[in-house]
Write a protein that binds this DNA or RNA. Structure first.
Length: 272
DNA sequence: ATGCCTTATTTCATAAGA
């Protein structure tokens, strides 16, 4: 059984690359992030033609996640219980004084696929450590931890994968000095990942296809990809029941090459 | 060649990404 997660940076812009990649890689379950379209406009027919069932959770210009499966897709959850939302500068701030009234963004979709509970996740970016968006990111992680704890109690075979927007260690960025004072590397963000691992989730670290670092993201600018100025922020967190079945995992950097790529590469995991 | 940013939208400029 082959699992994969990929931040496609617009499923519409990436559709030809996505379809070609699905046909060539033949994953059984795929988590997509940053699909950047509404649930209704997700290109389900094109993906279904390749034999997949689709659960899309989108909102339009930003965010958006999806699950594709050819081994069953049941009990779909759009978002998770307690998931916080975000409002930059709410026009009706007075009405939004209660945090609970902020509508969650499309950052999580879960489903039962081939005997595994699978979650495709797109964590908030955080922007800068002193921003409201950073506080939102930490709140989102705290709520995710609570939700996954409940999920694991009900189904021990679980995978939570996607764009976590946190580099777990300094080895997961090309130059730690560049990231001093930035998001993605701060102790609270790394603690949020540690808190997820404390639930019994294991970081399935993929093999790099080339070079020493299993980076999954390279900025479009400044030739970052050919210089391997990357980050490992797309993660696969697997419960023990799933992690014990892992026979291999790799970053598909071929998908980052060529015409009109996403700025992220897929992570592929094979299970016995 | 892996090659110097890309996306969707309240579009000919902007906000966001990480």
């Amino acid at each position: 059984m082959r699992l994969a997660t990929w931040n496609v940076n617009s499923v519409k812009a990436r559709l030809p690359r996505l379809l070609e990649w699905l046909a060539g890689t033949e994953p059984d379950v795929v988590g997509l992030q940053e699909v950047k379209t509404t649930t209704a406009l997700f290109p389900s027919a094109e993906v279904e033609a390749l034999g997949y069932q689709v659960a899309a959770h989108g909102e339009g210009r930003w965010n958006g996640v999806a699950l594709l499966s050819r081994v069953g897709l049941e009990h779909v959850s759009l978002g998770f219980p307690g998931e916080p939302g975000y409002e930059d500068e709410p026009a009706d701030a007075l009405l939004l004084d209660e945090p609970g009234l902020r509508k969650p963004e499309a950052r999580a979709v879960g489903a039962d696929c081939g005997g595994i509970r699978v979650w495709s996740l797109y964590a908030p970016n955080g922007r800068t450590p002193d921003s409201a968006h950073y506080a939102y990111k930490l709140d989102w992680y705290a709520a995710l931890r609570t939700a996954l704890a409940a999920e694991l109690a009900a189904q021990p075979a679980l995978v939570a994968f996607g764009d976590f927007n946190v580099a777990p260690t300094d080895a997961d960025v090309w130059d730690p000095a560049v990231f001093v004072g930035s998001t993605h590397v701060t102790p609270p963000e790394r603690q949020a990942l540690a808190d997820l691992r404390a639930l019994g989730l294991r970081d399935v670290v993929p093999k790099p296809m080339k070079g020493p670092h299993p980076f999954t993201y390279w900025d479009y600018r400044a030739g970052a990809f050919p210089k391997d100025m990357g980050m490992r922020i797309d993660l696969v967190y697997a419960s023990e029941a799933v992690a014990a079945r892992v026979t291999g995992a790799y970053v598909d950097r071929e998908a980052r090459k060529g015409h009109a790529p996403s700025d992220h590469a897929p992570v592929v995991v094979d299970l016995d």
